[in-house]
Design a protein around this nucleic acid. Structure first.
Lengths: 339, 339
DNA sequence: CTGAAAGCGCTAACAA
DNA sequence: TTGTTAGCGCTTTCAG
């Protein structure tokens, strides 16, 4: 089961050369059936398992994909990681995850350790726009497939899979505006971070189209986590009048905000409607269930794998998230769960 | 930044032999200061990075740890993984995660892929008690360090880190009994799974000590996830009278149960008190916040790393979880969050 | 203190 | 159809 038998041992036992064994292992065609059978039998008998490290060294392929996310702890990236792992394992690849902890300073370190591990491909989810990192990534992409999540690198071999945050946020805003909301707050990710910017633009655009003035005071900014949402909500309650709705850059912040509102007796959605982004599992657990945009992690993972493994010709994928209406915006939303 | 410069290039450029470069890299002592400096300078100039694969091949060490959990999706294992990764990276190790999806049938596959990847150590969280797996693990443990989570392998080199589920459950039960609860339900993990058994025993023991009869009808069993908790709660409401408290094998099931109660207008803790196990982040988010047992993931990760890397002499670690009282058992629990 | 040489386990021309 | 040979990039005796 667990041993140290090498290709050499197999060769000797089967009375063939090591290269023949190698060919059998790798399924070459020009081999006599008889030989193949004999070698396979010996392999089974000796319990031989090819040494992947040695193989990697020769072929310069590790069959490992590096996945870089801002935050492994975050439910969205967690769910994404699980799907990616599933997806890549279908093609015989393993996955490493690395977290930049949402800080640009860590991005270079993470890149270094992946390169050190000789990954065959990288999925990179950027935090910021640092020129140095950008150049490094472009350079890397000339050697190994690099797919970027939610950031486009023009004029480079870097392909990208993007959630259409603009469209998503627009949908959320239009939904609220159609319901009559006029005073809508926005809880953004860190401004200047990749995670923050275009969602906020969509917020502005939607207001513009509805001729609602953009008010600086309605914009809050956090770190994409529950705690930040909670804090932003606290800030928000200093406003008078309170906004009638709030859109958050992701579910975690929306959930944090809902928590604060609940503590203060502010009712969701009666006093304030809330919309998140990501459709993480917890949207269904919180009370009321959270209305959100669903980017469909499964599809994302599939597209990423396709681009990475060269199974698709696209170089840029843009995924439009679907609005999922639940109790945090509609008091009588029917939230059927098939449990 | 990203290159293909080898030890050979460095050697040539620095006018030394490859073995000298190797020695410099690995910090050998018997080298003239002058040489070391020159080599280091060249290394920097050429931007040389040692090829870890080649190194692994020679040293037969990959510096990778394999982590096997029943379910990566599960918040508890997620949090554990993050901590383990942090902990092991301190010693220069990377981590793979593998999920057995809580099914014994997948355990062997997972073991195989880890072995194929030549991991230097394994953390294994068992699902069941299969004899075949047991034997395989013992065999592996004779070659590489194997640490088991929550399961003890007597008479083998397998060390283990264990959460004291018995003690924890006892604490939960005693807490409830002291508050006057007599009719206490229990939501267990799958019986026959490692995750299920001793917690249920503690439940029984606590009842026994308080001279409360054990009733089969108060025992429910699920799959350790939210959905299961929800379903068990649904079953439970068929009972008359409703139990005044329920203890769940983990937080996810407790949270699922709370969700069902909420939907049915059964108030927690007024109508029924709820206690979970794990102290995952979401305990603070749900409403009311969930009383639970805290096994301290951070400590677990630390101990695991110690045992794995041979930094501790223990062979068995037993961690007593602390009861954290929140609103799901005490209507006026003060749940201070330092947000 | 430094270098030559052998080899980790495997693959891939190239020959036979 | 099969075997010979030459490494991949690094470490590690062992000589010098």
């Amino acid at each position: 089961m667990i041993e140290l038998v090498t290709i050499k041992d197999v060769a000797k036992a089967a009375n063939v050369s090591t290269s023949t064994v190698s060919k059998v292992i790798n399924g070459y065609s020009n081999l006599s059936i008889e030989t193949v059978q004999r070698v396979n039998k010996t392999i089974a008998e000796l319990g031989f398992e090819p040494n992947i490290t040695a193989k990697s060294m020769r072929t310069k392929k590790t069959n490992m994909i590096g996945i870089v996310v801002p935050d492994v702890d975050h439910p969205f990236f967690m769910e994404l990681f699980v799907e990616l792992q599933r997806e890549f394992s279908l093609s015989g690849y393993g996955c490493f995850v690395f977290s930049t902890r949402s800080e640009e300073v860590h991005e270079m370190d993470v890149i270094k350790s992946m390169l050190l591990r000789q990954v065959d491909g990288i999925l990179f989810s950027s935090v910021g726009w640092s020129e140095q990192i950008t150049q490094t990534l472009i350079k890397i992409s000339e050697r190994i497939p690099l797919v970027s999540l939610n950031r486009i690198f023009p004029h480079s071999p870097i392909k990208s899979v993007n959630i259409d945050y603009f469209e998503g946020t627009l949908r959320a805003m239009n939904f609220l505006i159609e319901k009559g909301h006029r005073r809508i707050a926005y809880i953004s990710g860190h401004l200047g971070n990749v995670a923050g910017d275009d969602r906020l633009q969509a917020y502005r655009a939607a207001l513009g189209r509805a001729s609602i003035p953009y008010l600086e005071e309605l914009i809050f900014s956090g770190e994409m986590d529950i705690k930040s949402g909670y804090r932003c909500a606290r800030e928000m309650t200093r406003l008078y009048p309170l906004p009638s709705a709030v859109v958050a850059g992701n579910d975690a912040m929306a959930i944090g905000a809902m928590k604060y509102f609940k503590e203060k007796g502010i009712r969701v959605p009666n006093d304030i409607a809330v919309i998140g982004f990501d459709n993480i599992e917890w949207c269904n657990i919180v009370d009321p269930p959270l209305t959100t945009l669903n980017p469909d992690v499964r599809i994302i993972a599939k597209r990423v794998a396709e681009l990475m493994l060269g199974e698709a010709d696209d170089t840029l994928v843009l995924l439009k998230p679907e609005l999922i209406v639940r109790g945090s915006t509609d008091i009588d939303a029917i939230n059927v769960i098939d449990w």
